[in-house]
Design a protein around this nucleic acid. Sequence first.
DNA 1: GTCTGCGGGCGCC
DNA 2: GGCGCCCGCAGAC
Length: 329
Amino acid sequence: MSRAEEREEADCVCSVGMKFTWDINDPKLPQDTKQCDSFQEWTDGYVRFIYSGDDKNAQRHLSGWAMRNTNNHNCQILKKSCLGVVVCSRGCTLPDGSRLQLRPAICDKARQKQQKKLCPSCNAPLELLPCRGHSGYPVTNFWRIDGKAIFFQAKGVHDHPRPESKSETEARRSTVKRRVSSPPFTPKRRLLEPQVSDITSLQFLPALLSCVDPSERISFIEPNFTQHYPSFQSPEPYYNHNALGEAPPTLQKPANPRLYMGRPSYEFQGYLTSPSYPMTSDFCDPSCPSSSSNSSSVLSPPPPSSPSPRLLQAEGTAERPPPPMRQPP
DNA sequence: GTCTGCGGGCGCC
DNA sequence: GGCGCCCGCAGAC
């Protein structure tokens, strides 16, 4: 058995979807799925999941990544492609040492509007860092409802930092909206007495505050702050490729020689070591494939012995021509 | 205003 | 034909 096969077999233990051999395009999908995977918000790599048809998140085709609908001319399969992440074009560092990583707006108009804004930290223009994790193209997610199960398949490894999750974006929006619509209160008292129950969350406040306009920051600190931002209570590592996914097949056998070139203008290490996404040792536990309600158990950094494609790029081992450059809008 | 899903259409391979 | 992508539309929030 080859190493790739051994690894794939080991990975298969981690999710119900990976226990079966299927592809989203298969005419017939596995039917005898007694078990289902718990919903994974931050899927990454070439992974498959089978969710319960009752799973609300799966029904809504949710993802932590900013995924936009892509027409694949197949009404049976919903296809979504990753928009990447919005970062500061200057790559500045926020007061807490982290980097600005905003969630790109899904709507094209809203995204263009978003990109016209300036970095709240250094006033440099914001820049959309596109995803090119799937053979030079954006990572794609496929959703398909079949029987009582919802089949999910992801293709590609995100080659950019995680954006703010959807729930975080919505929470921030609602907070801002609430402040605008509600009567004024005593901002000084709020700032001085944040009343955050989990004091460890305070370390993320500078980064969060810098993501909003100064005029919006006052209301950002709330007593229920950690409820709005659960992921900040248990920060997950950004870099967790292939915790349970297959090894990207195109890495061993690139379909396109233009692929897998790192972005020279970005220092990945800065993202990898960002305090917002500290590395953990919370690897996938093969003994509990689908019982975990915490997605971070699946989204773990790869073991040191198996550097990910991105790390290989960062180490300069990828001697590949640059990916196809897309025309700016 | 924004998100989401859908579908037409185009270009590339 | 498959795929990626752009665009517009409609419904929902």
